[in-house]
Write a protein that binds this DNA or RNA. Structure first.
Length: 104
DNA sequence: CATCTGACACAGA
DNA sequence: GTCTGTGCCAGAT
């Protein structure tokens, strides 16, 4: 009840994201591309709407310039989770971004 | 149907 | 390298 229905677009965002393994990241823009769209903003909105931190690893989604981006529990928590998965973050940006980004 | 909002991207300064 | 403005798309009102 009071639970908004998940749109097709959102569900596809989560499916794509689920392909990203721990230790790797993806970007809002890349997810959009994987869906045949350029709606990077809508992807971010989809993550914010869901915030299923258990089933959906939305902490692995960062900005296209390598900066961490937003997170339901805050950037600090997002950074901590990524660090635990082996990703190094310095000054709010992913180190060796091109090496850790997952290519669909 | 019109308008606003946002976990963004990109170009210019 | 940082900051600002403009464009973008889907969802909400």
């Amino acid at each position: 009840m009071h639970r908004p229905a998940i749109s097709d677009f959102q569900q596809r965002c989560y499916e794509v994201l689920a392909r990203v393994p721990a230790g790797r990241v993806t970007t809002y823009s890349e997810i959009a591309k994987a869906l045949g769209s350029r709606a990077s903003r809508a992807v971010g909105t989809a993550m914010a709407q869901n915030s299923q931190l258990i089933t959906i690893p939305c902490h692995r989604v960062v900005r296209s310039d390598g900066s961490v981006g937003e997170y339901a529990l805050g950037q600090q928590e997002k950074t901590a989770l990524l660090t635990k998965e082996g990703i190094t973050i310095r000054k709010g940006k992913v180190v060796d971004f091109d090496q850790v980004i997952y290519r669909f």
